[in-house]
Amino acid sequence: MGLCEKAEGLFTQPQKHNSKKMKLNLKIWREGGQYKKGQFVNYQLDNVSEHMSFLEMLDVLNEQLIAKKEEPVSFEHDCREGICGTCDMVINGHPHGPNAGTTACQLHMRFFKDGDTVTIEPFRAKAFPVIKDLVVDRSAFDRIIQAGGYISVNTGQAQDGNAIPIEKGTASRSMDAAACIGCGACVAACPNASAMLFVSAKVTHLATLPQGEVEAKRRARNMVKQMDEEGFGFCSNIGACEAECPKEISVENIAILNSEYLSAAFTGGKE
């Protein structure tokens, strides 16, 4: 019955230009469902187009699994344009794959070769427990933000947006830090599973701006306290976080957080 075939090629003419097709060996971590304890399972995928995104390649695998009435591989994803921070997987040892400044959803198959073996694992950290297959629980990040990652202003209390001029460079540095998408790749990449890059990006984003400076000390103290309680490791300035960060957030933010925290501890007054 041709229903499935009919569904293909609906939106476009099949590609005529020389798009390469490749064969991949996938080694994917499965956990939950029939794979109680968690294990790697090998899959072979033919006819992978170089124009596919990495997640579209996994879609194709899942379609094949479903056709065989097997459970598809669970992985999280949403916007598929590198901004929501939902996708989270370690590809060949790199969170979000080997390309710099790229989320897994932006990674395209033209960076792989015919016959490659691709190992896909979940983010590994005690503070990010595995939920199923490649899906992990990153709610610790939410709790860290709740501990102080905001400016305390109620709706309607604001003065005119131009009332406080902010130097262009200052706004830009704040924006560099604010670009963090909260995906957790920094934790996944860090041999210590430290969340310092994430926390420092938020602290820097807000502390750099005059609006956020007011409660900067309190913020640094409370966010670090929550970070410690969540069971993340201690930063030893390895720098893998920066190297793997899909938004290329700088470890300089960590130095800024450290100095904020130190000054909070010694001059921040009573909590």
């Binding site: 604001a158 984003h205 609006q211």
Partner: peptide, 15 residues
């Protein structure tokens, strides 16, 4: 009011 509110929240708008 939205712009004012967002600036107060620390949205790093272009300057």
């Amino acid at each position: 009011n939205i712009i004012d509110q967002a600036v107060a929240q620390g949205v790093p708008f272009a300057r």
